[in-house]
C-alpha cells in the first residue's frame, strides 16, 4: 500500500510541478499582454493559421456529424412517434456537447499540433534565443499571439461547426426523411435556450480554446530543441489537449449544467 502510494506520489509531484510551470507561463503571457505593443499583425496572422485554415475541416466535420445525428436521431425517435422533435435532438446535442468538444479536438489536431511544432522548431533553430538576444521576449512576440488566436478562434469555429451540423441534420431530417421544415425548425428553436444552452456552449469553447492555446504553446516552448524533442512535444500536445478538453467538458457540464 505504501509502495503504491509512493509510486503514485512521484508522478503526482511531477504533475504538480508541471502545473506550477504552466501557471507561471500563463502569468507571463498575461503580463506581456497588458503591455504595449499590441502585436495585431502577428495576432491576425495566427488567427489565419488557427482559424481560417481550419474552416474547411470544421465545416465538413460539422456537416457529417449533423447528418449522422439526424439519421440516428430519426431512427430512434420514429419508434416513439416523436420524429417531430428531431430538430431539438440535433440542435441540443450539437450546441451543448458536439460543437465545442469536437471543434476543440479537431482544432487540437489541425492547429494545436502545428503551433507546438512551429515553436519547437523555432527553439531548435535558435530563433527564440535570437529574439532574446535582440532584447525581445519570445513569450511576447511568439507565444502570446498564438495563444490568444486560439482563444478567439475556438468559439467562432465551434459556432461554424454547430451551424454546419444543424444544416446537416436539416438535410437528413427534412430533405431525406420528409419531416416538415417548420416542425424541424420550431422544435429546434423551442428546445434551445440562450442562457441554458448557447451561453454554456460559448463558455465551453472559450475554455477549450484557452486550454488548447496554453498547452500547445507551452509544449512547444518547453520542447527539447531537437527533431525528436519537437516530435515528442507535438504528440504530447495532441494527447494532453484532447484529454484535458474531455475532462474539463465533464466538469463544466457538471458544475454549470450546460
Amino acid at each position: 500500500m505504501l509502495r503504491l502510494l509512493r509510486r503514485l506520489g512521484r508522478p503526482l509531484g511531477k504533475v504538480i510541478e508541471q502545473l506550477g510551470r504552466i501557471a507561471a507561463f500563463t502569468g507571463h503571457i498575461l503580463a506581456v499582454t497588458v503591455h504595449p505593443p499590441l502585436r495585431l499583425r502577428e495576432f491576425v496572422d495566427e488567427v489565419f493559421k488557427a482559424g481560417v485554415l481550419s474552416i474547411l475541416i470544421i465545416c465538413v466535420s460539422g456537416m457529417a456529424v449533423g447528418m449522422v445525428l439526424g439519421l440516428q436521431g430519426y431512427n430512434t425517435l420514429v419508434r416513439f412517434g416523436a420524429e417531430n422533435s428531431l430538430g431539438a435532438v440535433v440542435g441540443l446535442s450539437l450546441i451543448r456537447e458536439m460543437g465545442p468538444v469536437l471543434t476543440a479536438l479537431l482544432t487540437t489536431g489541425r492547429a494545436g499540433s502545428a503551433v507546438t511544432a512551429e515553436i519547437g522548431a523555432m527553439k531548435a533553430t535558435e530563433q527564440l534565443d535570437g529574439l532574446r538576444m535582440m532584447a525581445v521576449d519570445p513569450i511576447d512576440y511568439v507565444i502570446r499571439p498564438k495563444a490568444w488566436a486560439m482563444v478567439v478562434a475556438m468559439p467562432l469555429l465551434s459556432a461554424l461547426f454547430i451551424v454546419a451540423g444543424i444544416a446537416g441534420g436539416y438535410l437528413v431530417g427534412v430533405v431525406l426523411m420528409g419531416i416538415d421544415s417548420g416542425t424541424f425548425l420550431s422544435s429546434l428553436e423551442n428546445a434551445v435556450d440562450f442562457d441554458d444552452d448557447v451561453a454554456g456552449s460559448i463558455l465551453k469553447s472559450v475554455i477549450f480554446g484557452t486550454l488548447v492555446g496554453l498547452i500547445s504553446t507551452y509544449r512547444g516552448y518547453s520542447a527539447t530543441p531537437t527533431s525528436a524533442g519537437v516530435s515528442a512535444a507535438t504528440t504530447s500536445t495532441v494527447v494532453l489537449a484532447s484529454v484535458s478538453v474531455l475532462i474539463f467538458d465533464y466538469f463544466i457540464t457538471a458544475l454549470w449544467r450546460v
Binding site: I162, V163, I166, E189, V192, D193, F194, D197, V198, S201
Partner: peptide, 8 residues
C-alpha cells in the same frame, strides 16, 4: 444565429 434565432 445560435444566440438570436435558435436561442431566442
Amino acid at each position: 444565429y445560435m444566440s438570436f434565432s435558435i436561442g431566442n
